[in-house]
């Protein structure tokens, strides 16, 4: 073995061993665990462990709360992804126009929510959403809208949580879009303007094709992130009211660490895993078809 080969292996082995230990083995473990009835009795004595095949999966499909969590997560994703992408893109377009001044200042301020600690700002927004003394209802009262029980009403709990999530997360994709927008050919936009193309036509035919790949990638990654919502309902609503914010991962955590049904929780984890894989596959397919990356 050459010196270079020895050094190379020495440099990568620690992280490869670590990755196998804390990622590969546990992921295989999750698949195995999901076909057992691992629960608090097995936790006490492993002799109580039984193989149940697809039993956990079959039972999940019969549990109303599991379906509720799937529906809630789907709703979070279906409203949240377009809302988040539109906010990021809107602000990016605005800040990218050549005539806006003091851009670095705005960029830092707009990005600040993204770097804050999720639990801390979730606590802050719980009070922003307060029915009696929250800033949001105060702002609404200024335009004569009756107070809304944002986090206490099952009809508004998901939209309210989404307002917080979009506020927290839009900065990341905003940065990505600002970078993508800087690649839009200015001569082309100028030529279109001289040809009499309106703002929308220029956006549709000049800007959009240039940022299309970034937009699609951001959308797919957002879907994956929204499927994994956990902390927001845990801190802001505890899954309520009336289980309206129980997400799939919240359900998994509850099964696993409140009820110690680790077999059942692992089955949920595997389902999430497969869905994320499918989303990633769609992304790869779309990218290949359009020869973007």
């Amino acid at each position: 073995m050459t010196r270079q080969a020895r050094a190379g292996l020495g440099f990568v082995l620690p992280v490869m061993i670590g990755t196998v230990l804390v990622l590969v083995i546990p992921t295989i473990g999750a698949a195995l665990l999901s076909v057992t009835d691992f629960d608090i009795y097995a936790l006490a004595d492993i002799a109580n462990l039984r193989f149940v095949g697809a039993g956990n999966y079959a039972e999940l499909l019969r549990m109303p709360l599991f379906w509720r969590s799937v529906a809630n997560t789907a709703l979070f994703t279906a409203i949240g992804v377009p809302a988040a992408i539109a906010t990021s893109l809107g602000v990016a377009l605005l800040i990218s126009s050549a005539t806006v001044r003091w851009k670095p200042v705005w960029r830092v301020l707009l990005f600040a929510p993204y770097v804050t600690t999720l639990v801390a700002t979730a606590v802050v927004w719980r009070y922003m959403f307060d029915r009696h003394n929250g800033l949001l209802n105060y702002a609404l009262s200024l335009i004569s809208i009756a107070p809304v029980d944002w986090l206490g009403d099952p009809r508004t709990s998901i939209p309210a949580t989404l307002i917080f999530i979009v506020w927290k997360a839009f900065g990341y994709n905003m940065l990505v879009f600002i970078a993508a927008l800087s690649t839009v050919p200015q001569e082309l936009a100028e030529a279109a303007r001289l040809d009499g193309a309106g703002a929308w036509a220029r956006f549709r035919h000049v800007t959009l094709p240039a940022i299309g790949p970034a937009l699609l990638l951001a959308a797919v990654l957002s879907v994956a992130n929204f499927i994994q919502i956990f902390t927001e309902p845990y801190v802001m609503t505890h899954g309520g009211p009336a289980q309206s914010t129980v997400t799939v991962l919240y359900f998994m955590f509850d099964q696993g660490f409140t009820w110690w049904n680790l077999g059942m929780a692992s089955a949920v984890a595997m389902i999430v895993f497969v869905v994320i894989l499918l989303v990633t596959a769609v992304q790869a397919r779309l990218g290949k078809r359009n020869e973007w990356w």
Partner: peptide, 19 residues
């Protein structure tokens, strides 16, 4: 490593806790 990038961290957490 590239393939492992798609594994959500939460999947590994339950068995890792037991380990």
């Amino acid at each position: 490593l590239l393939a492992l990038a798609v594994v959500p961290a939460q999947v590994a957490m339950l068995p890792l806790f037991l380990m």
